[in-house]
Every structure is written in structure tokens, then in C-alpha cells.
Write a protein that binds this DNA or RNA. Structure first.
Lengths: 217, 217
DNA sequence: CCCTTTCAATACGCCACCGTATGTAGACTC
DNA sequence: GAGTCTACATACGGTGGCGTATTGAAAGGG
């Protein structure tokens, strides 16, 4: 697992160690926590070390964001089990979003700084990836283009919103069985019907969610 | 519309002017933008003025948050038309959430600082209010206690997520008719069935799809 | 007219962080 | 065992924001 460059590690630091420390700092204190001297203190060195590895603060930020993007893409790719049904893929994505508290905070903190030109491209690429992944899953569920995109955005927004609620008002989140029910409700609502593996290939305007009889009015 | 204390206003400032300026700054630059000297510059004065109206920066923050809370409660109360159906109330809440870009950014920025002890109480009270409002609406739609609460949280999270997407990756948001369809999809999905309110205008091309039926039917 | 009150300008010390310049201990090189 | 490269430490100047202390000016009140 590598020393991870904790303060007691006596081996010398690498640029990646700084980037990881920066991500940890972002998850806790937001983008402004990427400050050279505090990070150096946390790593048990002085900024003399930092300016050997990086040209300036922004270079560290870019390195951290690249590391973040790689990690995000990895977790996304790890969800792509080719044998899995679209339903399973969306569900596992949903559960991944609720898994690591740190990663959630990290995502939110970075996204919140999307007005920063250094950050913008990363956030856009990542968001696009997630939404595209969802989009494809919904297409595989039989939804036509625009509809699939709408469902994908809907699901993505719900993911993000849950991250937020968990971060900002965790006491609002139900616990235990109630939480399970909550998640199940969202999953059932966001993935209507076709839990079955085979993707329909219909070209209709709206979800071809056939086997639902109309409400008898 | 009151002078709003723009830089050219020659009348002397009030504490409320500072609080409003602080809210504007938060909406644009986050909590850290509540900085005495920059705000003073924006108002066309020096911090000599500020420290006459406030004891310190945190006092301004509290004043701004109180102003924010009042405004939020007002917009919430303005949604409570006693004659409106629960359906209409949720819909109008949903549309209110998509209305003012500034207010959205404001909410997100403040919520993101919920770890700050000064901010925490405000965010919790406000979130609780919104969720309770949704909760009651869902109860009025016939959902039992835990279920109504789950739907309320679900809807709230979706609201927040949409705010985020609009702030961080606005180009992901559909536009024009596609956006309308997107909103309609969310509304139809989040408010299942009981569109009893006669004000519900459904000029939709296909019959109202029943999103889900109780399991084990 | 003076005097108080209100609102603001100016000047100061303090701290945190950025970036640079330079020093330096250890390893490695031959 | 002198040179060189690596990975830091130290010291310095600069910037931006906080808070305080002091001064100033205009308005209204007696």
C-alpha cells in the first residue's frame, strides 16, 4: 500500500504524494485548503520541498485534479461489468455515489470551484462521463435519445443532491432500514420497469415501457 | 426599489446594505468572498465604515445569514397558497428552485459551508423547513409518514442536484423545449399519480404514465 | 454658534500565505 | 574524497485581509 507519505514516513516525497495530500485537503477544507505551507506542515516538511517538486500552487492543483480524474475514471470503469444489465449498472453507480464520504466531499468541493478555469475542464469532462454512462445505460433500457438523456441527467442530479444532503445536513438522512427503503425508492423510481437484462431496441418517442396498463381513470 | 446601496448611492449605508452586499458576494464568490475590505471597496467606502456597523466579520456573516433566512422563508411562504393542491405546491416549489440563478448559487455556497458553526444552524433550519414543506405536501397526497418523508428527501435532493448541475456544468442542461420536457419528466416522476389539483395543466402528448406500483401487488 | 451624534477616512500592527533566493546534508559517482 | 545531484531547510520580501486607534466631517439639536 506504499507509505502514503504520512508525516512519519522517512522516505522522501514525490509529486504524487503532494497531489494526494492536496486531494485529502480539498475533501476536508475545500479548494482553498490547497495551500502550500499548511500542506507542507501536514507532510512534515517545509515549502522548500514543495517548490522543488512543483513550479507553483496552480501546478499542484492541476496535478491533484489529474489524479482525481484518473481515480474517478477508474471507479467508473470498475462499474462497467460487461455482463451486468443496465439496471445493475445504474444501481451500482448509485451505490458507489453513496459509498465513500471522502469522495463525495471531494467531488462537491471540486465541482463548486468549476468557475476556476483550471478546474472547469476537469469538472466538465468528469460530469460528461458520468452522464454519458448513465445515458447509455438508459438507452440500453430502451429509452430513445432525448428521453434517455433526460433520465440520465435526472439520476445524476439526484446523485449529486444526495451527496450534498449527506454533507451539509447529515442528520436529515434516514438511517438503518429507513435508509435502505429510501435508496430503494429512488432506484425504483429512477429505473422504471425494465430491470431485465436485455435492452430493448425501440425507437419510440417516449419510454417503451409496455407492460403497464393505463390507470383505469 | 430602494438604492440598494450601489457604489454611486450617496446616502449613508446601513447594516442591511452590508448584509445584502455580503449575500451578493457569497452568491458569486462563496463564503470567503465575505471579506471586509473587498466589500467596502465594492460599496465605495473603506472599512472604517464597516467597523462602525459591525463588531467584526463574523457579525456581518450572521446578519447576512439572517437576511438570507428571512428571504428564504418568505419565498417559501409565498408558495403556500392555501387553495393550491399539494401537487401544485410541489410543482411551484420545483419551479422556484429553478428560477433565480443567484439564489441557487447562494443556497449552494451557504450550504457548502455548513461545517462552519456560524452557518450550520441556518442551513439546518432552512433545509428542515423545505423538507418539511415537501413532507406535508406528500402526506397530503396520501403517503404515509416514512414514505412521505422519503419522497420529500428525494425531491429535495433532486432540487439541490439540479442547482448544482446548473451552476457547475450549465452546458449539460438541456435548453428550450428539451428543458421543458426534462422538468416535466422530473415532476411526473417525483409526484406520482395524485395530480388531483385541477390546476394541473397536462398538455402532454401521451397519457400520464404511472411510474410505479406498490411491490408485491 | 457650539456640541453631540453619526458615519466614514486614514494609519497602524498583525498574521497567513505566496514565491524566490540561497544554503545544506546526504547519497551517489568515479 | 572532490564533484554533483537530490531533496529538502531557512530566510526574505511581497500581498491581502483582519481588527484597532485616531481623526474628520456633516447633520441636527439646543
Amino acid at each position: 500500500m506504499k507509505p502514503t507519505a504520512t508525516a512519519d514516513s522517512r522516505t522522501s516525497l514525490s509529486a504524487d504524494d503532494w497531489a494526494e495530500a492536496a486531494l485529502d485537503a480539498i475533501a476536508v477544507g475545500g479548494m482553498d485548503a490547497v495551500a502550500v505551507e499548511p500542506l507542507a506542515r501536514g507532510l512534515g516538511v517545509t515549502k522548500g520541498s514543495f517548490y522543488w517538486h512543483f513550479q507553483n500552487r496552480d501546478a499542484l492543483l492541476r496535478a491533484a485534479l489529474q489524479l482525481w480524474e484518473r481515480q474517478q475514471v477508474d471507479t467508473l470503469l470498475s462499474r462497467i461489468d460487461p455482463a451486468a444489465s443496465p439496471y445493475e449498472r445504474i444501481v451500482s453507480l448509485f451505490k458507489a455515489a453513496n459509498m465513500s464520504v471522502r469522495d463525495g466531499r471531494l467531488y462537491l468541493a471540486i465541482a463548486a470551484a468549476a468557475d476556476n478555469p483550471t478546474v472547469q475542464a476537469f469538472v466538465q469532462r468528469l460530469s460528461e462521463r458520468w452522464i454519458s454512462y448513465l445515458d447509455e445505460s438508459y438507452r440500453a433500457l430502451g429509452y430513445a435519445g432525448p428521453r434517455a438523456r433526460q433520465w440520465a441527467l435526472f439520476a445524476f442530479a439526484t446523485f449529486m443532491g444526495n451527496l450534498q444532503v449527506r454533507r451539509d445536513t447529515p442528520q436529515m438522512m434516514p438511517e438503518g432500514q429507513d435508509f435502505s427503503d429510501y435508496v430503494k425508492l429512488m432506484i425504483k423510481t429512477l429505473i422504471p420497469r425494465e430491470a431485465r437484462g436485455q435492452g430493448a431496441e425501440e425507437e419510440d418517442d417516449h419510454p417503451h415501457v409496455v407492460p403497464m396498463r393505463r390507470p383505469g381513470s
